[in-house]
Design a protein around this nucleic acid. Structure first.
Lengths: 239, 239
DNA sequence: GCAGTGTGCGTACAGTGTGCGCATCGACGG
DNA sequence: CCGTCGATGCGCACACTGTACGCACACTGC
């Protein structure tokens, strides 16, 4: 339980003491993780410090350690928590391929909402052990098996799709961080770096031409094209 | 230029002064980036601090800022530098698909040698603007065009393959960081976490079965299977 | 009423990125 | 040969980080 009015004998009157406990619920692991996610979403990875997070919860930095072993574990918990947002359709109600596509879209949407996930996946070991990640993997596996993939093939298919989704996610994360640091709007930032990109590719006429040829492709189109290719290829290699 | 024997009037004799300048070449951007990469490779991302890096170069931490704007820029330079290790075959001497496969392998090998790359790609904005990354992208583009892909299709294909490779790279990075933190050997660590994984998947019989069915697959097999699927799918969608 | 346990937090320590200003170098112009 | 100048190295300082430690308090069970 959180103290509503901690004793502080320096201040003579009880009523004069600052109240820290603003009628919020007591500190709990769920609340800490939830607020950490909010902080990460709104202010980015760099802004997540224990003191900062403590302030948002009207708590001291070191209080958080009663509920979380260390910062890395907190991030691991946050990663798993946001994986809970991913919707994976049941193979009973959805055709397998539509289900996989829908789940992949849901995954990318999650990374779009929480771009910090993609940038910490590599530095936090073994995050795929979290219960929500497990639930998602199991759900996709069910879809592949419904699709006629063998056990071993399903495992390979799952890994291929996840690799593609995460790779795409790293791309959106890179864009989002650069965007956030610029402080500009999406369009403004795109307009600003467009000439920089063109200057960087200038020595490579082939690259320049291909970028111009594909300029109309939105990120969604590119993601769907890649995802379709992966699934087509997996189907082609299914026995 | 670096001073071999900086003045220090507190120490009376010239000969008693500590010599800092150990006959190493003077500080330069290339040398700093090179040593940073060595440090990242051997001690990991957390160990890269300006003071730490300065020590290795027999230089003060703040001296580095004469050659590099800030730590993020240093990492950006390091990212591009290691991309120089990726070999991309010429379409003149290599069949397009073999070339793409070879380049993908080379990319994954690079990430294996420098796992920190995969974990910072998301937090460092726009790293694909570096000259070495550009060179590699242009090289792969040439292969795809040789393979009969149109300009726009080549761009999509390139992005799909890169997403898959990076996603796979994040996976190996996650493994490598957890491995490095454990301090154990590869086999020891694998053996240690095996029961943990089995316990985590226990509630999901399907997941358990598929992991067991695919237990014999090495990471290389999994990567190749995914890569083949991606390429097969891209070919199938080529017009 | 009292011991035990769980929880919050003030303090402290070692370490971080980096701005500032000074010291010193090599090069160049007289 | 001397003076000036720009480039470079670096000590210091500041605000900030993760987190170990120990004390103070509230709640629980007797």
């Amino acid at each position: 339980m959180r103290y509503r009015e901690p004793m502080n004998s320096d201040i003579p009157s009880v009523w004069a003491r600052p109240k820290k406990g603003r009628d919020q619920p007591a500190l709990s692991r769920e609340q800490i993780v939830g607020e950490a996610i909010k902080l990460l979403d709104t202010e980015g990875l760099d802004a997540l410090s224990m003191r900062n997070l403590g302030k948002r919860l009207d708590a001291g930095a070191t209080s958080l350690y009663r509920h979380v072993a260390n910062k890395d574990e907190l991030i691991e918990l946050a990663i798993d928590e946001v994986h809970g947002e991913i919707e994976v359709p049941s193979p009973d109600t959805t055709e397998w391929r539509a289900g996989v596509v829908s789940c992949a879209h849901s995954s990318l949407a999650m990374i779009n909402n929480h771009p910090w996930v993609a940038s910490v996946l590599g530095q936090i070991g073994l995050s795929y052990l979290g219960p929500n990640v497990m639930r998602m993997s199991d759900g996709m596996l069910a879809l592949f098996e419904k699709g006629g993939f063998s056990l071993a093939e399903s495992d390979l298919a799952l890994r291929a799709v996840q690799a593609f989704v995460i790779g795409s996610g790293v791309g959106v994360a890179a864009w989002q961080t650069s965007l956030a640091r610029s402080g500009l709007s999406d369009e403004q930032w795109a307009e600003r770096i467009q000439p920089i990109v063109m200057a960087a590719v200038a020595p490579y006429p082939r690259l320049t031409a291909s970028i111009e040829a594909a300029a109309a492709n939105t990120p969604e189109v590119m993601f769907d094209h890649g995802l379709n290719a992966v699934l087509d290829g997996l189907v082609a290699n299914r026995h």
